[in-house]
Design a protein around this nucleic acid. Structure first.
Lengths: 188, 188
DNA sequence: TAATTATGTCAAATATATTTAACGTTTCCG
DNA sequence: CGGAAACGTTAAATATATTTGACATAATTA
């Protein structure tokens, strides 16, 4: 049998890209990783499907974690949905922020009960402010983009990030999404 | 050589956990994945380090992506997104604190998904710590006492107070109460 | 109880990954 | 211009992953 048929064709390319980004030759990387140089050549050509043990060793030489490595291939799961929803994008609005407390002066934190109507979008122009931000989805689902990471979060799931990294929220579903968020210090 | 020395010892356990979570036998999963049952047994015992091609096949039977699978082991610091079951459970008993992120070092804020069982009580001895605290009730109702003020809060209602003031939480109803809380700086 | 079916494990056979050692090419100094 | 030294690739040898087919045990059914 071949054994390569079910192989992720991107593994090799991603490894090669990563390696070159880090200005490493196959042999250099191999030495750092403590493996033979041939295996890197073969992996990059998709001529072998490395064991996770081997891949982990190799990535440690870069270094990058398995999770981060595979996150690079994370396909924007449902581009089909995006297209459909992006038609409504112009509206942009339809986000209600219900803030805990009327006056934030002197407060260290801002807590909001947010509602994203179907299609709601904080906008392409990604937000940035000097703070930390976290939230828990309590109903529906919300697409959260932070830097180059994007994730569709559902009820019970959560996020926490540095607000200085550009970010964006979108409700791609056709159910209103509710989120409890906290931000420190308050952003507006 | 062994070849297992550099193996992630968690791969097997994670696979076994996932499989059992989804109520699948080794053979059932094997059939769905289109692989032999033995390989699953061996992987779960860490007696073999699967190739990524093989692991991908196996995970497709669950199904879960490679990225998500390896995200389960990702170190907390770099995490942005959390699945519901990944929230870090801090205390059992009739109050459960499920924290967004495992390691708070370097973080300005602590966000929790809390569950108060019927009758749950943080205790007469009122809590005090040097911080600010806020929350939103998302299910059930909760009696919140802050200083000499007491209030029964219901779904959608919220609180915000200075944690230096003694405070206490009790669930007087016979339904579990869920609250999303945020605290800055983290209190434990 | 006895027969049946499902479970997880393992040994031997087979397929594949990985290493070793070589090759042709390019780059960079002498 | 030579000739090291580094590059990426590959064939054959070796180690390991994966399959096949069987075993023992536990749960289920007649």
């Amino acid at each position: 049998m071949d054994g390569l048929e079910d192989n992720d064709p991107g593994v090799g390319q991603r490894l090669r890209n990563l390696r070159q980004m880090h200005d490493l030759s196959q042999r250099e990387l191999a030495k750092r990783a403590g493996v033979s140089n041939a295996v890197i050549s073969l992996i990059e050509q998709n001529k072998s499907s490395p064991s996770v043990g081997m891949l982990k060793k190799v990535l440690a030489g870069i270094p990058i974690s398995l999770a981060d490595f595979f996150s690079l291939e994370q396909t924007p799961r449902s581009r089909i949905f995006y297209r459909a929803e992006e038609l409504f994008e112009i509206a942009g609005g339809d986000i209600s922020y219900r803030q805990v407390g009327r006056d934030l002066r002197g407060r260290a934190m801002q807590v909001l009960h947010e509602r994203y109507a179907p299609g709601a979008d904080t906008g392409e122009a990604l937000l940035r402010h000097d703070a930390e931000e976290a939230g828990v989805i309590i109903r529906g689902e919300l697409e959260v983009t932070v830097g180059d990471q994007r994730q569709l979060l559902k009820e019970g799931e959560a996020f926490y990030f540095d607000s200085r990294v550009p970010h964006r929220f979108r409700n791609l579903a056709d159910e209103t999404c509710e989120v409890i968020t906290a931000c420190t210090p308050p952003s507006f």
